[in-house]
Design a protein around this nucleic acid. Structure first.
Length: 223
DNA sequence: TTTTGATCATCC
DNA sequence: GGATGATCAAAA
């Protein structure tokens, strides 16, 4: 199956991504000689994989930014209207047993958020899936203000988790970042230490960016 | 089985 | 309508 070679520079990646603007899902799928899954439920994550192939990502399933050599993470972003993202954005799984070894600066979360190539895609249910179009990509790094809030969120949530408070944490915590389940289903489990330091099991979690935040991010870069 | 890619479906 | 918790698919 057709796949682009990895881009050698940020400029090349941006140039390549700009060529997606205005393309429909059907058009990009045709260029990559692939078929669109029939059922909506089979399309979860499919757009992201399609764009990865179109742009030539290199990280595979590693816990690293998609373009490892460039330090850039790729995210498709469903937009229900201009500047209105429809969903939260998964950032990274939370390594519950090793989180205490990380700081914000060394975290896998920050590794992905320090530079992101956002590819907006129409997601309104009024547009048939194949006809949804890609918007103008945005190569973004957190502003000083955004960085401050993200760092605060991460430190706060991570501190609660590493001190055994995970059971209390839910998705309402955090201003820009939130903690939510990241698993095949609610019966999935992974190891974690409880508040007494005893090994137990819990639902795997991940850090997500709130839709409110990604909407803001796009409106602040509007021309 | 785990990590990636996310969106679905329900509850408020 | 929006946010939260649950879930689905591909790849390794």
């Amino acid at each position: 199956m057709f796949q682009e070679q990895p881009p050698c520079s940020e400029e090349e990646l941006v140039e390549r991504s700009l060529r997606l603007e205005g393309l429909s899902v059907a058009q990009l799928a045709a260029r990559l000689s692939t078929r669109i899954p029939q059922h909506p439920i089979q399309r979860k994550g499919w757009i992201g994989l399609l764009v990865e192939r179109a742009l030539g990502t290199t990280a595979g399933s590693l816990s690293a930014p998609d373009f490892m050599n460039l330090g850039i993470e790729l995210k498709t972003l469903p937009m229900k209207a201009p500047f209105r993202s429809a969903e939260s954005t998964f950032v990274s799984s939370i390594p519950l047993l090793r989180l205490h070894e990380q700081t914000w600066e060394t975290s896998t979360c920050y590794a992905k958020l320090k530079r992101v190539l956002w590819i907006p895609i129409e997601s309104s249910s009024t547009i048939d899936f194949p006809y949804r179009r890609f918007g103008r990509p945005l190569l973004w790094s957190p502003s000083e203000q955004q960085h401050r809030v993200l760092a605060d969120d991460w430190v706060f949530l991570s501190t609660v988790i590493t001190t055994g408070g995970l059971a209390e944490v839910d998705a309402r915590w955090g201003e820009y970042l939130q903690v939510r389940p990241k698993a095949a289903n609610s019966r999935a489990s992974c190891a974690v230490l409880d508040e007494d330091g005893c090994s137990t099991r819990t639902l795997p979690r991940g850090f997500y960016l709130r839709a409110r935040f990604t909407s803001m991010l796009f409106s602040s870069h509007a021309c």
